[in-house]
Design a protein around this nucleic acid. Structure first.
Lengths: 198, 198
DNA sequence: AGGTTTGATGTCTTTAACTGCATCGCAATC
DNA sequence: GATTGCGATGCAGTTAAAGACATCAAACCT
């Protein structure tokens, strides 16, 4: 337990998920038993430093001690490194791949379904976005919806739902925070404010 | 043992020292036994996260997980926060205090000693400098020398030596790296270099 | 529906951190 | 020379993480 410890646990889990790793995969990677990882992420154990470092290392993270006053700066710096870029590139790519396959499947199974073309067009549109801009959860939701389309008697509802979801993802990608090409430092929010205590 | 763990231990010790804390003081502050702190700093134990967090907290540090690629930036950021400012303010203050007391002692014991006035003048001069600019080791050396002055038959040698040392400290403070008032961000060395792997 | 994966939990043994206390050597101070 | 404060070390007892299993329920995919 503890203010900080919970943070650490949460960050470990977040890092694992955005890397698309299961607890077992991470287990193999870090040499820490899956059961232990589960307990750690749940925050029910007071883990050893060696375990923490092993996990962090496997997740391309480093454990650092930073001065209190530098914490906000470091936070924004870390955020920039993970969210603006990288995020869950692999996971998103994978999801897009699967959606693409689902799309293909639909075109074979129900080629003459009204609106399928529109969906296809939207998808082609979506594929032009740079990976990091896409929302993983939105994509997952979308795929789930798309798979409903092959269900008899639900085609139309599922189809229009899918189109809606896809446009939602598209809009989010278009208007969301832009990681863009040359990541402009966007004003250095990281600067140590002088407090001169003591 | 471990690549990272040693780092952590070292940083803990460094933080403690620059704060001018003894292991026992830190022990009281963090609630971790002195013996344990010793072992931790020596790197002979694989400490628990709770201990680490307790110590970090007591030292005004926070444990954070930062992405590999952001590590250099974070490092320079932390360095800036500790070294440019703060350094070992407390220790320097303490040392200055003790020198002041030593000075007073000399003025009582050997008030008519030639050159004492010059030493006093130099010291007053020194006191006008901002704390962080002063060199701790130089001050320690100085005090040691000053205490020799009360030793019979060595007064003169010790006195001139003290004057020399004090001027050395003064010069270092005057011409050394200036932590100055408005710490200029001195060019943001922290920027995440794009590598775009994957 | 059946098979697989994922995360959560349980049990047992081993290992080691942790605590509390005492002590030691060393340096600095009086 | 005695005292004090420092860090390091030893030891006995308690506690809990680690490791190596085995399950289990839920979600997922075919």
């Amino acid at each position: 337990m503890g203010y900080d410890s919970a943070d650490i646990a949460a960050r470990l889990q977040a890092a694992r998920k955005t890397k698309g790793l299961s607890q077992r995969e991470l287990s193999d990677l870090a040499g820490v038993p899956q059961a232990q990882i589960s307990r750690i992420e749940a925050g029910t154990v007071d883990l050893r430093l060696s375990s923490l470092v092993a996990l962090a290392h496997a997740l391309d993270l480093e454990l650092t001690l930073v001065p209190r006053k530098a914490v906000p700066a470091v936070r924004s710096l870390s955020r920039e490194a993970v969210s603006a870029n990288r995020k869950d590139i692999v996971a998103v790519q994978k999801e897009m791949q699967r959606i693409s396959e689902t799309m293909r499947g639909l075109q074979i199974k129900t080629p003459n379904l009204d609106g399928l073309q529109q969906l296809q067009k939207s998808f082609s549109d979506l594929q032009r976005f740079r990976v990091p801009t896409l929302d993983l959860d939105g994509l997952k939701q979308l795929r789930q919806s798309m798979e409903q389309i092959s269900r008899p008697a639900k085609e139309m509802a599922a189809l229009s739902q899918s189109i809606k979801l896809m446009q939602a993802v598209r809009n989010k990608a278009a208007h969301g925070p832009l990681p863009d090409t040359g990541d402009s430092p966007s004003r250095p929010a990281y600067s140590l404010d002088e407090d001169d205590d003591a």
